[in-house]
């Protein structure tokens, strides 16, 4: 039962959906509803109109081009987890998708909806940041592409404008020589992450030629940790964990930490480097 009544629109095409969004600036898009329906129930979202994409044609495809994979806005997390073609090219994303909540949530929740929900503990946002994904965004007035990092501006907050919706998430296909790994810390299986790390590294002659690390969980928003990436470049793979633990990159995150009563700042500043070191070491151990 929602806390407040709303009108439900179920457009059958993207252009009809965009018209519905243009007509009501406070309308909310609904994809899988796995976050929005609880928000409506709790009264944390009180839109006058909900525009459901459940019967909107053309949004449920995975298009695999030679250099890019486009995941339509209604593709579920479960499909991202299990699709063999996608998994072969975007293994990091598939691994992160398998960590999302329960099968129940993954069966209906979508990749695009997860990114647009901008939960700091999302599993899919750090993976999308490492893979340098972009959202393809449309409104009744036009179309633009926005990087996932630029789109998310804080907890549950995005830079999408009224009238806009994501129609697809686009991933450049990484060279198969990248090793990748995903690590998540939870108290109870199925919970949102207390901390999560997506890692991609390319090793040449025993040293890290390139590294990408994205952290989420106890931060206002998940971020690429550029300082740590720079520290890791050129370092022997065997010295990776020591480099993570010895660096000053945590200073860059200080302003973004989201401590609470159970996860105070001193715990977070002690835990995150160890957690990240383990994530990087695990990725290097995984082989190309």
């Amino acid at each position: 039962m929602p806390a407040a009544a709303f009108e439900l629109e179920r457009p059958e095409s993207v252009s009809e959906a965009l018209d519905a969004l243009a007509a009501e600036p406070d309308a909310r898009v609904m994809a899988g509803g796995q976050s929005l329906v609880p928000l409506l129930t709790l009264g944390l979202a009180v839109p006058p109109v909900v525009v459901s994409l459940d019967r909107c044609g053309g949004l449920a495809d995975i298009e695999a081009g030679p250099d890019e994979v486009a995941v339509g806005a209604m593709v579920t997390t479960r499909r991202v987890e299990l699709d063999a073609g996608l998994g072969a090219r975007l293994r990091l994303l598939a691994e992160a998708a398998a960590s999302v909540g329960s099968p129940h949530v993954r069966n209906f929740g979508t990749l695009a909806g997860n990114l647009c929900h901008a939960d700091p503990g999302s599993d899919l946002i750090p993976a999308a940041l490492c893979l340098e994904a972009e959202l393809e965004v449309r409104s009744a007035h036009g179309r633009r592409r926005v990087g996932v990092g630029e789109m998310i501006d804080g907890p549950f907050s995005t830079a999408l404008r009224p009238g806009e919706m994501a129609v697809a998430v686009r991933f450049p296909v990484p060279d198969p020589s990248w090793r990748c790994g995903y690590r998540k810390l939870v108290r109870r299986a199925g919970d949102l992450a207390m901390a999560c790390a997506a890692v991609m590294v390319r090793v040449e002659d025993g040293a890290m030629a390139e590294a990408r690390v994205a952290l989420g969980g106890p931060l206002r928003r998940a971020v690429r940790v550029r300082g740590l990436e720079a520290d890791l470049e050129g370092v022997a793979a065997a010295d990776a964990a020591g480099t993570v633990l010895g660096g000053t990159w945590m200073d860059d995150l200080a302003g973004d930490l989201l401590p609470d009563a159970t996860l105070p700042v001193d715990y977070l500043t002690a835990m995150l480097p160890r957690f990240t070191a383990a994530a990087v070491a695990e990725t290097l151990g995984a082989g190309p």
Binding site: M1, L8, M30, G33, Q34, V37, P38, T41, L42, S52, R78, G101, S102, P103, H104, V105, N107, F108
Partner: peptide, 23 residues
């Protein structure tokens, strides 16, 4: 009523679903 406990699980087209999270 917010998708965590699973007491409301049903199958929708054969897939497990929290019926509290679907309209």
């Amino acid at each position: 009523e917010i998708g965590y406990c699973g007491a409301c699980t049903v199958l929708v087209d054969g897939a497990a679903a929290h019926s509290c999270c679907l309209l």
